[in-house]
Amino acid sequence: MHNLLSFLFRYGYCFLFVLLEFICLLLLFRFNNYQSGIGFTSANNFVGAVYNVSAEISSFFNLDIINKQLVLRNIELEAENSMLREKLKSVSPDSIVDELHFTLNHQGYGTIPARVVNNTINMQDNYITLDKGTCDGIYPEMGVANGNGIIGIVYMVSDHYSLVISLLNRKSSISCKFKHSDYFGYLRWQNNDSRYAFLEDLPRYAQFQKGDTIVTSGYSAVFPKGLIVGTVDNIADSEDGHSYLLRIRLAADFSCLDNVLVMHNRNCAEQHELESLIK
């Protein structure tokens, strides 16, 4: 008995080591389970608050860049505005009302503005934390975009924060198509460069060229149709040779995200209901 106790006392730390490693692995695998990891991620309130302060400080230093982007965007919109004004003069009142009605009905999306409080781009799987949560009407599987292009999909939400799976994440897979044709593929991220992602499963007979614009296909109801994703940067064959593998230059600059829009589809439930009928 005495020997046993002294043995336990001398080597007890080994058992503690095994126990702690076991807890670590448990956490590691539990996190894959949807929603259960909320307490151990940056979507919890305390860590969210810390990142909030940090984001406010860093957004102050980014004001210069954001200002330049806004000026450019302003010029762009100014040009578009004058062009639309020209068009407006040439059409009758009736046709405009019809067109507006059609777009709203067709898209059926509302938007919630939010700010990025934490963002990584150099991990294997990147997540973004936003400062809005269930209290502001954000729920999992809503799309997130900024003025330049799409950014990701909401993954977990707490009361005041939400965690977004960035496009730069191996779990992310978004259905995209060409702006000028309807051939579609899936956008995934493979390597460690935050500027590029890859468009997979594109059929071999699709017609396109370098520099073509890629937009969301709108099939999944997460994103409306036609949001800009990026441009074709390089064309290669997939590993099995049955389809193309395109390197896409992403339109959104993931290294300086600040203001974003979360989109919710008003007809989402209806589409899910209809699609569940065939299962």
Binding site: L20, L25, F29, R30, F40, S42, V47
Partner: peptide, 24 residues
């Protein structure tokens, strides 16, 4: 030492959204 190591790793993990990785 082991307990401090666990707390340290877990604290970093919570900030980087990788629970268990740094801790292990």
């Amino acid at each position: 030492l082991l307990l401090w190591g666990f707390c340290l790793g877990l604290a970093v993990d919570i900030f980087t959204n990788t629970p268990g990785v740094n801790a292990a």
